[in-house]
Nucleic acid binder design. Structure first.
Length: 501
RNA sequence: GCUCCGGUGGUGUAGCCCGGUUAAGCAUGACGGCCUUUCGAGCCGUUGAUCGCGGGUUCAAAUCCCGCCCGGAGCACCA
């Protein structure tokens, strides 16, 4: 290869490699990147929310920067948080392999938001209006403000104190940020930043009844992103307009807005449920909990035996495209299968068992099969039949398909299938090549097996007792059938959750 | 309705910003073969997008311009 050709090849290779990872972040230099993940702790994480977390974390890592976890829990009324979710979300993140350098709760930062509210009122970039929601909406659509907008800071601050002191009741006053009353998008015009929430009616799960004036999303997020030194924001495209709104506040304070990237929604073809639908389904008992395998919550995926690396690599491969992605679940499972295959030991299990008697076997037989065919060093498992107990279970289907023919019980030998009886012919492996290979479980080594399927149903059958060597949480492969993650393993039987074929 | 953002094979994604040796790459799926005492994994191959539609600019457009269609998001005192 000529030097030029070689160079061209190298450039091409480099580009190819880049494609596999995340594209470079605009305006990013090593060591200076700060990103954040800012969930509302009012539910658990699902695949969609994982996207924000993974992207933000991966970029921070890529540039040796800082990654911050920030709980956005500033609505004790409509989107009330629950103490349990703070911990559940952290558990999900830890499972994904995400480490955060700092952690904040917005509900503990109200004094900070208040301080900047005063500053904004003093600077004349915000005001407090008594206009009710409807009046405001009507006027702003016509490009006309409520009268208080042009009043001096002293009067604004006076109203601010009234908000804090309780002189105003819920809905009687709201602090708004001045933008452009003729902005083409009416949703941008003078957006709301603080409202009053009656602490007696709506206590906050963390700070209780301490506050009656709460910041809205755009205020809290904008102030925090600046104060925490966030350089890059990665969030869903539903926040695109929020960026436009917040920029007015940043301009007012003379701050520089971070680089904001808005990606599209991520859904799986099946089980695409919103947070509220999940909550509702659980309350109504249609789902057994957040980890119901029909759900696409992270905790459910984890329970199913999906590896966290499968999720991160799926998200990374999708990049930061702004269009919505409806990912075929097969795709996730394919990535996952490659991850679990090498770590899954093999066992025989039969789910539509038919007991048959083996005839003509050469005395007692004990066969050793590898726990994993590609990693023989992991040892073997033993299956035994004897003339005293020559009974084994095979799948009803396997029996039906092979009746009147010869097939091989894997590891044991070749048999002619007759009515309720399998007749031993030989153990010739070369002859076995052309025969169907079926799995089997000796009657004397059978324990109960119960599998929770991805549609919520349960499959009952039997499994070879060797599986007792496994620990809960490990993923195994039931040969010729599917992969499953074990939840309970004991003499009483095994309980596992279906992963994928 | 108004304001944004998108539209590449079954699915996801690269390329578009700086228009031409890539008339479209990669992954996954589907199909077939090899290997294997699994219908898994691995290896090999096949399939499959005229780059939403119509026009324009140009010697040349997925890449630039215009119109249209379709999809999504936002239009909360939610996040």
């Amino acid at each position: 290869m000529s030097p030029d050709a070689l160079k061209a090849y190298e450039v091409k290779e480099e580009k190819r490699k880049e494609q596999l990872g995340l594209p470079p972040l605009p305006d990013a230099t090593t060591g200076s990147v700060v990103t954040r993940f800012a969930p509302n702790p009012n539910s658990v994480l699902h695949l969609g929310s994982a996207r924000a977390a993974v992207l933000s974390y991966e970029y921070a890592k890529m540039y040796s920067g800082k990654f911050i976890l920030r709980f956005e829990d500033t609505d004790p009324r409509l989107k009330r948080s629950d103490v349990k979710f703070y911990e559940m979300i952290k558990e999900d993140l830890r499972w994904l392999g995400i480490h955060w350098d700092e952690e904040y709760l917005q509900s503990e930062r109200l004094e900070i938001y208040y301080e900047y509210a005063r500053k904004a009122l003093e600077a004349g970039i915000a005001y407090i209006t008594e206009c009710d929601r409807e009046t405001f909406r009507k006027r702003v659509l016509e490009g006309v403000a409520c009268p208080e907008r042009s009043e001096p800071p002293e009067k604004q601050l006076g109203r601010w104190e009234s908000m804090l002191s309780g002189k105003y009741k819920e809905g009687e006053a709201v602090l708004r940020v001045k933008t452009d009353l003729s902005h083409p998008n009416p949703a941008v015009r003078d957006w709301p930043a603080f409202r009053i929430i009656d602490p007696e009616k709506h206590a906050h799960p963390i700070v209780g009844k301490r506050y009656r004036v709460w910041p809205l999303y755009n205020w809290a997020a904008a102030i925090d992103d600046h104060l925490l030194g966030i350089t890059h924001i990665l969030r869903g495209q539903e926040h695109f307009v929020n960026m436009i709104r917040q920029k007015y506040l940043y301009d007012g304070f003379g701050w520089r807005y971070p680089v904001a990237i808005h990606y599209g929604r991520l859904l799986l073809m099946e089980g695409a449920l919103s947070k509220s639908e999940i909550e509702k389904g659980i309350k109504e008992g249609r789902f057994t909990g957040y980890d119901d395998p029909r759900l696409m919550t992270l905790t459910a995926l984890r329970r199913r035996g999906i590896r966290p690396e499968a999720i991160t690599s799926l998200i990374i491969s999708m990049g930061i495209n702004t269009n919505d992605a409806v990912v075929d679940t097969k795709n996730l499972l394919a990535i996952n299968r490659k991850l679990i295959d090498p770590i899954s030991n093999r066992y025989f299990a039969v789910f539509r068992p038919r007991m048959v008697r083996l005839e003509g076997i050469p005395g007692d037989m004990s066969v050793s099969l590898p726990r994993h065919p590609s990693f023989k060093e992991r040892g073997t498992r033993k299956l035994e039949v004897s003339s005293k107990n020559p009974f084994v279970y095979i799948e009803e289907d396997d029996f039906g398909k092979n009746i009147g023919r010869e097939a091989r019980l894997i590891g044991l030998g070749n048999f002619i299938f007759a009515d309720g009886i399998l007749m031993f012919t030989d153990n010739d492996l070369t002859r076995a090549k052309g025969l169907p290979h079926i799995h089997w479980v000796p009657e004397g080594q059978a324990i109960k097996a119960s599998i929770l399927m991805d549609d919520g149903s349960t499959k009952d059958g039997i499994c070879e007792a060797n599986i007792l060597e496994e620990r809960p949480d490990s993923v195994v492969q039931f040969e010729r059938l599917f992969f499953a993650r074990l939840e309970r393993v004991s003499e009483e039987g095994v309980f596992a959750v279906y992963t994928s074929d």
